[in-house]
Design a protein around this nucleic acid. Structure first.
Lengths: 163, 163
DNA sequence: GGCATTTAGTTTCATCTGATACTATATCTC
DNA sequence: GAGATATAGTATCAGATGAAACTAAATGCC
């Protein structure tokens, strides 16, 4: 049924989609992201960037949008939109920056903190369900390897694009 | 260096964005995908779905779009659009299906096969650059773990959504 | 054979995303 | 302190995505 592959194949290794790491990574990530995005959207009306902002603000307190961009790498346009959505729902407050009139300091409101407290267990439960069956060592290694991949991709991207 | 997690952890665990696996996975995947998407787009005018179709057709020969969807999980709309784009550029041919008038059989043209032969080494080089510094064992484990995550996400998604 | 249902693929639409352009403020140089 | 430049954030635009509606052909049922 499948085509016979013969000697004419390139020597330097073969490209099989199912074994190709970027593909595997993308497919796995999409599956996980969609699962989680739907859970947050359906139950709390939050999209992924909004939820990330809430997490960052819950962890780090008052931050400017620029600081969030620096901390997370999320695009500044995405941060701007997420912040607007959250502010409209009074989940975050934007207070004037004491020294920079262009900037605002974002912080969770009481409602925002309550929502975070409500969503966080769900998020952790999803993570637990996803890694069920993996040993702690495997999970730790997975996170480490993902960090390596991301670092390598960023380095290659910077190198290739910026010269 | 890494935080020791022990009994002192809060009862249900704490949510730290940087340690949250779905987040790490998404960030790593986006970094890798963007890197590769730009490379294919800039040099060959291919987007990711188009490149995936080319790979699948190079591996498996003549397939219908439905077979590609079944094989890869790519959305049928995405497959349709990618196939249109590739057919317009004469990189694939669509011949009538012998028994089903709704369906067409997709196969690489000579040009399409040439393009595949040209892009594949680049794709493999990117993969090699990304995993440079990782041991073969680590890479194998990473792929296995990604498969597990994807399977878990699919199972949870089916279970939660469909009831 | 004729009608209902299913299936392959396309079109449409609503949303998300990020690049680019823009506004307003801040900083730097003289 | 005035003008040039840089920066924080927003608005606009173009492309990607996938859900749902749609078309055309196949299959099932009687």
């Amino acid at each position: 049924m499948t085509a016979q592959r013969q000697l004419s194949d390139p020597p330097a290794g073969e490209l099989k989609l199912d074994a190709y790491l970027p593909y595997r990574l993308s497919v796995a990530s999409n599956a996980v992201s969609q699962l989680i995005a739907r859970a947050y959207e359906d139950r709390f009306g939050l999209n992924i960037p909004q939820w990330r902002l809430i997490c960052v603000l819950a962890e780090d307190g008052g931050l400017t949008q620029g600081a969030i961009v620096a901390r997370t790498g999320i695009d500044k346009v995405t941060v701007s939109r997420a912040a607007q959505g959250l502010a409209n729902r009074r989940l975050i407050a934007r207070s004037d920056h004491h020294a920079d009139g262009r900037s605002h300091v974002l912080a969770l409101t009481v409602q925002g903190a309550q929502l975070h407290a409500e969503v966080a267990p769900l998020a952790l439960a999803y993570e637990a369900a996803l890694i069920a069956g993996l040993s702690p060592d495997e999970v730790a290694l997975l996170k480490r390897l993902l960090g390596r991949l991301q670092g390598a991709a960023d380095a290659l991207s910077g190198g290739a694009v910026k010269g």
